[in-house]
Structures are given as C-alpha cells and as structure tokens.
Amino acid sequence: MAEPSPAPPIEPPPTPKTSRPIHTLPPPFSHDKLVPITQGAEALVYKTTFLTPNTPVVVKYRPPKPYRHPTLDKRLTKQRLLAEARSLVRCRKEGIKVPAVLGADWDEGWLVLEYVEGDTVRRVLDGWAHDVEEAKKSGDGSDGVKEREEAMLDLMTRVGREVAKLHELGVCHGDLTTSNLMLRQEDKAQTEDCAQPPLPSGDIYLIDFGLTTASIQEEDKAVDLYVLERAFAATHPAAEPLFQEVLRAYGESSKSAKGVLRKLEGVRMRGRKRSMLG
C-alpha cells in the first residue's frame, strides 16, 4: 500500500490588495509636502503645514492594516484615533500641556496636531549624562555641574507635577516614557548663542496619547509611573536618582497620589503585567 502523499506545503497567503500603495497618505495630503518624523507600530508621523504656509503641524496617520478584515480594521483605527483625540482635547480643556488637536478624519485615519518645538526629555537627559561624565574625566567638580544638576532636579519636579495633573483628571497615558515628554523651548536662537549648554527651562508637554485610557484605577496610574521609571533607568545610571524627584513632586501634587505610590511598590515587584490568575 502506498503511503498517502503528504499534504502540500502551505503557501503564505498573497498580500491583500489595498486601494492605495501602502504607507501613503490619503488626499489631500501629498508626500512632497510631508517630512517624516518618526514611525511606530501603528502610526506614521509627519511634519507639514496647515491652514497657513507657515504654521508647522504634525500629521499622525494610521495606515490600514492589510492583514485585518477591512471592516474590523476601519473600526479599530477609528476607535483608537478617537480615543487619542478625545483624551487630548479633554486634557487641553483642563489646562494640561498637550498638543492641541487641529483636525482629524477618523474614516481615513489621520489626525493633525499642534507642533511642539523643543527636545524630548530623553535627549535632555542624554545630554546631561554625557556632560556629567566629561566633567568627571577632566576632574573639575565646578559650580557649573552643580547648577545643572539643580536645573535637572527642577525639570523633574515639573515632570512629576504634570503627570500628577494628568492622573488627577482620570487619564492614563499608557506609554509614559522619557521620549514622550517634550521640553518646549520657544526661542532656540537665544540658547544656542551662549557657550554653556542650555539649562533645561520651558514647559513640559506630554505627547503621543496613542495608548491612552481613561482610568481612575490606581493600578493603571502606578503602571504609568513604573514605565517611566524603567525609561529613566534605561537612559543612564546617572539619571536614576533623578526619578526620585519625579515621584516626590508627584506625591505632593495630588491627593490620591499616596495610594498610587503604594501601588507602585507592588508593580515594581511583579512588572507591568498584572497576574493573569483569576
């Protein structure tokens, strides 16, 4: 008896057809006027102009995912885009510093946001850590270093306060990292002039609310802080003590902060994911 022939090898399914080439924006946007800024798992971020030729804005585009069923894809895209936009508008209403929403099309998947000029806190921290090391090598523990450290601590205080304000409102960021914190610096020309590295002054802006959730649970808030803590630890060992200042400012700024900080202890022990038992 002949063995039954083995099943034919499974071919990968063909790439589904899309109405437009993948990763191009729908009209009216055209790529010759878009400057890519960054790309994440879900969205492409570009810089362009809006309303007037000299108003810079950010366009965040969630391209359709060809591997999903079109109906489901549309619904998920719409849901996530609107969650982000609603959160931003709500924060803006309450005076938390986030980019303003200027326009959106949830059927096409794009969102126009205010452009925030400045550096991410991540870059500020990197620059600072680098300078500290240099100073150690050359061996001068001068006043400049001390002064900068104080400025950094002040920066951390502001970060803590801003995050506390956000949490007080019942909004969790969902992806709170140092790269998602911006330090808005209006007049860059001024800071570039002086030989000394610029002191980090300016307002803290929270950006990228792509994973935001409305939550009043201490657990979610604690996870926000935990993610931020890990981000600090990953930046540079010198930056780790700075996070204590963030927590201190956070604890002082809101009434419900104590519970969150207590919860943070628990999150630290087990990690970001909650146990899946029960």
């Binding site: 609107l82 936009a85 929403v101």
Partner: peptide, 16 residues
C-alpha cells in the same frame, strides 16, 4: 490662544 486650541479640538471631534 488656550481657548482657541480647545475650540479647534471641539470642532474637529464633532460628529464622532
């Protein structure tokens, strides 16, 4: 400016 940015958001989100 603050009021303006809030209003722009409200207008954008209308109908969602």
């Amino acid at each position: 400016k603050e009021l303006e940015s809030v209003i722009l958001g409200i207008m954008t989100l209308k109908g969602s």
